[in-house]
Simulated scan of single mutants.
Amino acid sequence: MKLVKGFLWLLVGAVVVVGGSLFWLPQFTKNKHSELVMALDNVNPVVKPETVYALTTTKPVRQFTGGAGEKEYTYRLTTYNDRGQTRIVMFDAQWRLKPQRFLKIKTKGQNVESWTATARQEVPSGVRQNLLMS
């Protein structure tokens, strides 16, 4: 009986630690940029997919040659969601982005799932105002 009680307490403790870390990890990974952070956000069920918006900058933060010999560019952009919350994301593009263009970015935490250029009028007005002021 003592062994069963000990096992149950161990199991409860493990559930509390794992459950707590699922809720704590998104605060730890926010605005961090590594493969590990993106992987953690991608598998964490607490982190929900979200659409954020950005205004492109003039230059990428890095330019490199991809696996097939093509040029690729890394961008680091400040984004806003429709509630006005900010997040910094990094992603790669296969071409240079034109400066001062609006992007609609689908993310899951720090993991950028997709991005597309979008018209100014398709960006929510509060978000557009934040982007133009930053």
Rank of each mutant, 00 (worst) to 15 (best):
L22E: 05
L103I: 03
Q121P: 08
L3K: 14
Q27K: 13
F23H: 12
N44I: 03
L10C: 05
Q63C: 07
T86Q: 08
G6N: 13
G20I: 11
T58D: 15
N44M: 04
V37K: 09
V89L: 15
Q63F: 06
R87G: 06
V37E: 04
A117K: 10
Q27S: 13
P26T: 04
Q100M: 13
T79I: 06
F23V: 15
L40V: 06
E72N: 03
Y73T: 07
G6K: 12
M1V: 07
W95M: 11
W115T: 00
Y53Q: 02
T118S: 02
I88G: 04
L11M: 10
T86V: 10
H33S: 03
V12A: 15
G66E: 00
Y80W: 05
V46Y: 01
Q129G: 07
G66C: 02
H33Y: 02
Q121A: 15
K2E: 12
P99R: 06
V89C: 02
K108Q: 03
A39G: 08
V43I: 15
A14P: 01
T78F: 12
L103F: 02
G67F: 11
V123L: 08
G66Q: 02
M1C: 12
Q121K: 14
L77A: 02
K71S: 12
A117M: 14
K5R: 14
H33M: 01
T56Y: 09
R120F: 10
W115V: 03
Y75A: 05
L132Y: 10
H33G: 00
V37H: 07
M90P: 04
L55M: 13
E35H: 09
T78K: 13
S134Q: 15
N81Q: 02
